[in-house]
Amino acid sequence: MSVKSSFKKHALALCLLACAASAWAAEPKDAGGIYLGASLGRASGSASEYKTGTSLSLGFGAGYRFNENFAVEAFSRSLSFELLANALNNNPGYYPEDHLGLALLAGLPVNDSFSVYARLGTGRTRMSTGTTIKPDYKLSETSAGLGLAYAFTPRFAGKLEYLRFTRNEVNLLTFGLEYRF
């Protein structure tokens, strides 16, 4: 691991810790609770599937907000929608197909509607060739991201998020909607 990479990871962890520490401030009683979200985005990375550009990504999440600054979320993201990716290839390479994970979110409200947040997660990424020549396999990897959220109402919010899957070097830019119960 390079010094630059290590520094980035420690800086992100420090930001998450700072955001989480601010979570203990007094806040409205309805800031916590269960939420569901869905997102649509574009994935790009170093895998051969991304050489022609980017790939569509769909995501779903369910989480629990402890307060307006701190949440935990189970999430699923598709990382490639290449239906016939290696159909004519005799020696296909692996690419990240989808990811299932658990993340810690720490946010900081900017005003009554806007907030910024950071995400740190871990999970399993399914690696596929898109063929039956080689079997799929799963690997563990971390994910980290930054986002902006806008609360249209106390229960309904929109999110713009950048997410990075570290082991596969996949970048994901998504727009999502969240409903808070």
Rank of each mutant, 00 (worst) to 15 (best):
K4C: 06
S5H: 13
S6N: 13
F7Y: 12
K8W: 15
K9I: 06
L17V: 07
L17N: 11
A23C: 04
W24P: 00
A25K: 09
Y35W: 04
G37E: 11
G37A: 09
A38H: 04
S39P: 02
S44R: 10
S44H: 12
G45N: 10
S48M: 11
K51P: 02
T54H: 01
L58R: 09
L58G: 08
L58V: 07
G61F: 01
N67H: 07
N67C: 13
A71V: 01
V72M: 03
V72Y: 08
L79T: 00
S80D: 10
A85E: 07
Y95C: 08
Y95D: 03
G101A: 10
L102G: 06
A103K: 04
L104G: 14
L104F: 14
D112I: 05
Y117N: 11
R119E: 04
R124D: 04
R126D: 01
M127G: 07
T129E: 00
T131P: 08
K134S: 03
D136L: 03
L139H: 07
S140V: 13
T142G: 12
T142S: 09
G147T: 01
L148H: 07
A149P: 00
A151Y: 14
F152C: 05
T153N: 07
R155S: 06
F156Y: 12
A157F: 04
G158E: 07
K159T: 15
L160S: 03
L163F: 02
N168R: 10
L172T: 02
L172Y: 05
T174Y: 00
F175C: 15
G176T: 02
F181Q: 05
F181T: 04
